[in-house]
Simulated assay, not measured.
Amino acid sequence: MPEETQTEQVEEQQQETEAAPEADTSEEEPFDRKRAEAALRKKNSEAENLRKRLRELEPLAAKAKELEDAQKTEAERLGEQLTAQRERAEKAVRAAVASKVEALAAKQFADPEDAVGALDLTAYVDADGVIDTDQIRADLSELLKRKPHWALPDDSGPRRPAPDRTQGSSGNGARTPTSPGDEFAGFMQRALKGR
């Protein structure tokens, strides 16, 4: 029975809204400045009252949130703590695997951090948290096959001599530092003697 009354009310409202535009379009009232200002004052007053009520209710909403957090069950709090601890443990395991990969790569790679960035570090830890170093070694050697330019330089070939800065264009041993003015004067004297 209540459903019938609700549908009747909805139908009546639809008929009223359909009839309302016809009444408005038939005749428009002239603009009345005093009535418009009065309506504006009324709306501003209502808005101000609503803003005051909102300011009064905001602290109550914050307090309700605090009470809700305080009423969380012990299981919820422990669940949050467990999640935080798991995240910390995962970070620690990733750091441990990264340092292990870097240590093993230091023997073969010019920059061991290249290997750390190229490998999937999560693949080397089992469910118990044990790091599979044999698999790391195998993947490092496979990585060197794919990217041989990452390998340490081969020192077995002939070494090039280190440069000696005392040798050079001076010809007769070490040069003494001179100022440009002294060099010019020496040049002029040699030029005049040769004449």
Results as ranks from 00 to 15, higher is better:
Q85V: 00
A89Y: 05
A98E: 14
K65D: 13
R88C: 01
A95M: 00
E102Q: 14
A64Y: 08
E76A: 15
A96W: 02
A62Y: 05
R86Q: 13
K91T: 04
A62N: 05
F109M: 14
Q71N: 15
S99W: 07
R77S: 03
K65V: 12
A98F: 12
A96T: 05
A110E: 09
A89H: 03
R86W: 08
A62T: 07
L104C: 07
E80G: 10
R88V: 08
A105F: 02
E90R: 12
V93T: 03
L82P: 00
A105G: 02
A92G: 10
A105E: 04
Q81M: 05
A106E: 14
A103D: 06
Q108R: 11
E102G: 13
T73H: 02
R94P: 03
A62R: 09
K91I: 04
E87A: 12
D111M: 11
A105M: 02
E102A: 14
A84G: 00
L82Y: 00
A105W: 05
S99V: 10
T73W: 05
S99N: 13
E68K: 12
K91P: 00
K72R: 07
A105L: 01
E68W: 11
E74N: 02
Q108C: 07
K107T: 14
T83E: 14
Q85Y: 00
E102S: 15
S99M: 11
V97E: 02
Q81P: 00
A103N: 03
L67P: 04
E66D: 12
K107Y: 13
D69Y: 07
Q108P: 00
F109S: 08
E90F: 13
L67V: 10
A98M: 12
R88N: 01
R77Q: 07
E66N: 04
Q81N: 03
L104W: 08
A96G: 00
A95Y: 01
D111N: 14
V93R: 03
L104D: 09
E66F: 11
K100Y: 13
A89E: 06
D111C: 11
A96Y: 01
K100H: 10
G79C: 07
R77L: 14
A103I: 02
V93A: 04
A75Y: 11
K100G: 07
L67Q: 10
D69V: 03
S99L: 10
G79I: 04
E80L: 01
T83M: 12
L82N: 00
D69W: 04
A103H: 11
T73G: 09
Q81H: 03
K107L: 10
E102C: 13
A92L: 14
E80P: 02
A84K: 04
A110M: 08
Q108M: 08
A61M: 08
R88E: 13
K100M: 15
A96D: 06
A70D: 13
F109H: 07
G79Y: 14
S99F: 07
A106D: 15
